[in-house]
Design a protein around this nucleic acid. Structure first.
Length: 630
DNA sequence: CTAGGGTTAG
């Protein structure tokens, strides 16, 4: 007890009480001798001299401290002698020193120490090598890996699973895939850790199917295996598979940990699966994960992406420690929900709280300005990011600026901005300008934008469709048809619209025209009923959004089977009256659906939240939160 | 005393 307290207050100079004195060291003063904190070999030698003078046993020096102070200095041999005199196992002392170095900010120190141990012929054991591998892993040092590999062979540790696994991991991390594979294939024994390392590796490479193949066939699975695979599906853009896997994990009665929770929440966020997300939130609180910042940040993100700003605020308020990620997520959330002013206020609070913004923070801020048409504020933030915070604008920031300007109708300025960019504009940048051209009906600039887009991103169907719509709205039917023909000639297919809705933690996915759902008939029936009431309220199908050369009546049939309509009607018949409906769509909501959903929200008196590619639409009492501008 | 997941945007 007293030792700790004293250690904290001791200064770097030798304390008064350690001056030579007449008292013979008693166990108590001997204990005090251990308080000596020396910061250099020089100080150590002074103290050592005193110890000898006062006849104090050398064991009064803590060998691990001696080791860490002298390890990388010319006094290594001197330190080694003291350690050999005072410690039972010299190797243990150096190992713990290696461990500390490998976990420090300069893991290279561990490598340097290891070289010394070899030079001076210090006896090594398996632990020595694991710490060395740890350092190499931190440094992504594959060459180091091959050297350690040699030591493992030389010292006869081929059957040490810890070492083999660490080495496979090191090879994987440093990109030496062939070496990793070879070692993996040669390993006499493998355990669940070995398999988990390989799964992780395959997931990182993007081979989710191959990873799942391994996962399905590996002899033993633990929570980490399941978590890695769930995460793999999320990263691979397959959140539905992620959630299904999580359900199976629960059936096997395995208990999720913090990381599992992060993975599943990310899947919920991607699918707008609020019901499951809420359950995970409760589970997380019950399990005491509340203090984990990453869990909280993912929770924030989940609520924001499900369109539940209030819930997100609740989590944010309760958080003990907020990082730049927490603040940035909230700013972004407010921005995409049409609360730009609040987003900017939150940014000021963040600065007041001494949190340094990063590049993501500014994307949120620029979004906020762009959704509110605050052109000057946006310009100022853009200038400020590099001037005040030293953040170099990335292509995404330029994209935000083009969005800000072109949404506000400053199309010429937006084009000038693109011309003056310090980076080569990409498809997103020109596509953003194209979007602005549609809103503000500028055909000339749209044609310029599409020229660049046909070069930069010729397979992206979205741009053809926007241009075709621009022509159609100007009643230039032949031009519209020409664009569609070009699209066919270039072999570009329209991405099928698809919407998903989560009911009782099961995600239901609908693609346009879907008739595969078990409840298709009931959905159709309810839709017909709604259609009647909508017509009374003046609904007329807007077939101009159907870009197909077909009969008008056929167009209507297509229109009525847009995926968001199917998903929402399914939601209506499978949830209790008054329950809000949340649907997520892979593309932008079409104008006809937008008009229809406004009416439906009024007819059924429910809140309908649709998250589309860009933003949220919250339909309530016949109106949408986007105020018809999107 | 040793090995294997995680957060914001695009």
């Amino acid at each position: 007890m007293s030792r700790c307290a004293l250690l904290l207050t001791s200064s770097s100079t030798v304390p008064e009480t350690h001056q030579p004195n007449s008292r013979k060291p008693t166990p108590e003063t001997l204990e005090n001798t251990l308080l000596y904190t020396f910061k250099s070999p020089f100080e150590l030698k002074q103290i050592h001299a005193q110890i000898i003078k006062t006849n104090t046993p050398t064991s009064a020096l803590r060998p691990s401290h001696v080791a860490s102070v002298c390890a990388l200095t010319p006094s290594f041999p001197y330190a080694r002698k003291i350690i050999q005199l005072t410690a039972n196992h010299e190797t243990d002392i150096w190992n713990s020193c290696l461990k500390d170095f490998s976990e420090s900010d300069s893991p290279n120190d561990a490598v340097r120490l290891f070289n010394r141990l070899c030079t001076y012929g210090v006896c090594l054991n398996a632990f020595t090598l694991t710490f060395l591998i740890k350092a190499c892993t931190k440094l992504s040092d594959g060459l180091g890996g091959r050297i350690v590999h040699g030591f493992i062979e030389k010292l006869g540790f081929q059957s040490n699973l810890f070492l083999q696994n660490s080495l496979v991991h090191l090879y994987v991390v440093s990109g030496e895939v062939d070496n990793a594979r070879q070692l993996f294939d040669k390993m006499p024994d493998r355990d669940v850790v070995t398999w988990n390392i390989m799964i992780k590796h395959l997931v990182k490479r993007g081979d989710v199917d191959e990873a799942y193949g391994l996962f399905a066939t590996m002899p033993e699975r633990n929570v980490r295996s399941w978590t890695s695979m769930i995460m793999g599906f999320v990263r691979g853009g397959r959140p539905k598979d992620a959630i299904e896997l999580f359900t199976r994990m629960e059936e096997e009665r395995l208990c999720p940990n913090e990381v599992t929770v992060v993975a599943v929440l990310a899947a919920c966020a991607d699918l707008c699966a609020l019901d499951l997300g809420k359950k995970i939130h409760e589970f997380s609180n019950r399990s005491g994960f509340k203090r984990n910042v990453r869990v909280c940040n993912t929770l924030l993100d989940m609520y924001i992406k499900c369109g539940c700003l209030e819930a997100a605020c609740g989590v944010f308020e309760e958080m003990e420690n907020r990082t730049v990620v927490s603040w940035s997520a909230m700013i972004q959330g407010l921005a995409t929900n049409g609360k730009g002013e609040e987003a900017l206020t939150l940014f000021s609070k963040m600065i007041q709280s001494q949190i340094k913004p990063n590049e993501v923070t500014f994307i949120g801020l620029l979004h906020a300005c762009s959704h509110m048409g605050m052109v000057n504020a946006g310009r100022e933030y853009f200038a400020s990011m590099s001037r005040d915070y030293g953040i170099v604008p990335q292509i995404e920031h330029y994209g935000c600026m083009v969005d800000l300007l072109s949404r506000a109708g400053l199309l010429k300025e937006a084009r000038e901005f693109i011309k003056n960019m310090h980076i080569k504009p990409n498809g997103v940048v020109w596509g953003t300008l194209l979007g602005g051209c549609r809103v503000h009906k500028n055909i000339e600039l749209a044609e310029e934008a599409i020229k660049h887009l046909l070069e930069l991103d010729p397979l992206n169907d979205g741009y053809y469709i926007v241009l075709s719509n621009i022509y159609a709205e100007a009643k230039r039917w032949e031009d519209a048809a020409r664009v569609r023909k070009l699209m066919r000639e270039n072999g570009v297919k329209k991405t099928p619209g698809s919407s998903s809705i989560s009911v009782n933690s099961v995600v239901h996915e609908f693609v346009a025209g879907d008739e595969t759902h078990p409840q298709t008939e009931a959905i159709q029936e309810r839709w017909e009923e709604l259609l009647e009431e909508m017509r009374i309220k003046g609904y007329v199908p807007n077939t101009s959004v159907v870009l197909l050369d077909i009969e008008e009546s056929e167009k209507v049939r297509f229109l009525f089977r847009h995926s968001e309509k199917l998903a929402i009607v399914f939601g209506l018949i499978s949830t209790a009256n008054g329950t809000p409906i949340r649907v997520m769509k892979n593309l932008r909501v079409c104008e006809d659906c937008h008009a229809a959903l406004k009416l439906i929200s009024e007819i059924v008196d429910r809140e309908i939240v649709v998250r589309d590619r860009n933003r949220f639409h919250c339909f309530k009492n016949g109106a949408c939160s986007c105020k018809d501008f999107w």
